[in-house]
Computed example of a mutant assay.
Amino acid sequence: MSETPTRRRICFQQRIHPDRIEEYKRRHAAVWPEMLEALEATGWHNYSLFLAPDGLLIGYVETDSLTAAADRMAAHEVNTRWQAEMADLFDGIESPPDESFVPLEEIFNLEQQLAAARSAAGASRPGQVPRR
């Protein structure tokens, strides 16, 4: 029985050329099915992209490691083709888009803090059930 890797919540940013935003949206409205399958197979879970009007792109993914997930994707030929298709849409990068993620530090997580607060409340008041 194999052990399931722990998923980490990862957020990253990039920037899309402001004059290429509509093209970026168009391409992501119909991502190639083989690209979607490769992402899932290589451990990209709950993956979302968010785009601001000025081209700021925020990505969110749950995976064991952003580096490891990107490395697994690099082994897929479809990823090489996708990155080449997308490269000219990005602003300020010298390497392929999937090698240019700028990870963001998670500084607040509601579920983690609630669990810690409830645990502390339960430990400080023996016999009392923490509120939900």
Score class of each variant (00 low, 15 high):
29 A>E: 14
6 T>K: 08
107 I>W: 11
109 N>G: 14
111 E>M: 04
58 I>D: 03
86 M>R: 01
45 H>C: 12
111 E>G: 06
117 A>E: 05
128 Q>N: 11
59 G>K: 00
84 A>Y: 09
96 P>G: 08
107 I>G: 14
64 D>P: 01
10 I>T: 02
27 R>I: 14
91 D>F: 01
41 A>M: 05
94 E>C: 07
106 E>F: 07
81 R>A: 15
121 A>W: 06
108 F>V: 11
10 I>V: 15
47 Y>T: 06
123 A>D: 12
10 I>D: 00
34 E>C: 01
82 W>M: 04
116 A>K: 00
100 S>R: 02
49 L>H: 03
65 S>C: 12
127 G>V: 08
71 D>W: 09
75 A>P: 03
19 D>T: 03
9 R>W: 08
69 A>L: 03
12 F>Q: 11
66 L>P: 02
101 F>A: 08
107 I>M: 15
14 Q>S: 06
132 R>G: 09
87 A>E: 14
115 A>W: 02
8 R>I: 10
13 Q>I: 11
97 P>D: 07
104 L>C: 05
128 Q>W: 08
105 E>W: 14
25 K>C: 11
96 P>H: 03
44 W>G: 07
90 F>H: 01
29 A>W: 10
55 G>S: 05
24 Y>W: 09
92 G>V: 05
29 A>M: 15
17 H>Q: 10
131 R>Q: 13
79 N>W: 04
8 R>Q: 14
106 E>R: 15
87 A>D: 13
103 P>Q: 00
71 D>F: 06
51 L>A: 05
39 L>D: 00
26 R>M: 11
113 Q>V: 13
41 A>H: 00
72 R>F: 01
79 N>T: 10
107 I>E: 13
112 Q>C: 12
28 H>I: 09
91 D>A: 06
61 V>W: 04
25 K>L: 10
43 G>I: 06
75 A>R: 08
92 G>E: 02
27 R>S: 09
55 G>F: 02
88 D>E: 12
75 A>M: 06
18 P>L: 05
84 A>D: 11
59 G>T: 04
43 G>C: 05
101 F>D: 08
49 L>Q: 05
29 A>K: 12
93 I>N: 02
123 A>S: 13
43 G>M: 03
110 L>I: 12
29 A>C: 11
82 W>Q: 00
25 K>S: 10
9 R>S: 14
8 R>Y: 10
